[in-house]
Simulated assay, not measured.
Amino acid sequence: MTNKEVIQNFYKEFFNDHIIESADKYVREDYIQHNPGVEQGREALKRAFADKFVTEPTFHLNIKMMIEENDVVAVYLKNVDPQGNTKCRVVDIYRLEDGKLAEHWDVLQPCV
Rank of each mutant, 00 (worst) to 15 (best):
V54D: 14
K52L: 15
A74R: 04
F53T: 03
F49T: 09
P36F: 03
A44D: 14
K52V: 10
P57Q: 08
E68D: 08
R47N: 09
F59D: 15
Y76N: 11
A74F: 04
V54H: 08
V54I: 11
I67C: 09
M66I: 09
N70A: 06
I63W: 00
K46V: 09
V72Q: 05
E39N: 11
K52F: 12
N62D: 15
P57K: 13
R42Q: 03
V38M: 06
L45F: 04
V75T: 05
F49S: 04
K78L: 13
E39Y: 08
A50K: 14
D71T: 04
N62Q: 06
L77A: 10
T55D: 06
K78W: 09
A48Y: 15
R47S: 11
V73G: 07
V54G: 09
D71S: 09
V73L: 05
Y76L: 10
H60E: 13
T58S: 13
V38T: 03
D71C: 02
E68M: 03
A48P: 05
A48K: 14
K52E: 15
T55L: 11
A44K: 08
Q40D: 12
Q40R: 10
V75N: 02
E68G: 05
M66N: 04
N70L: 03
G37Q: 05
V72D: 02
L77M: 15
P57N: 04
V38C: 03
M66V: 06
L77P: 03
N70R: 05
E68K: 04
A44L: 14
M66Y: 00
H60Q: 12
E56T: 08
H60W: 01
N62H: 03
K46H: 12
V75W: 00
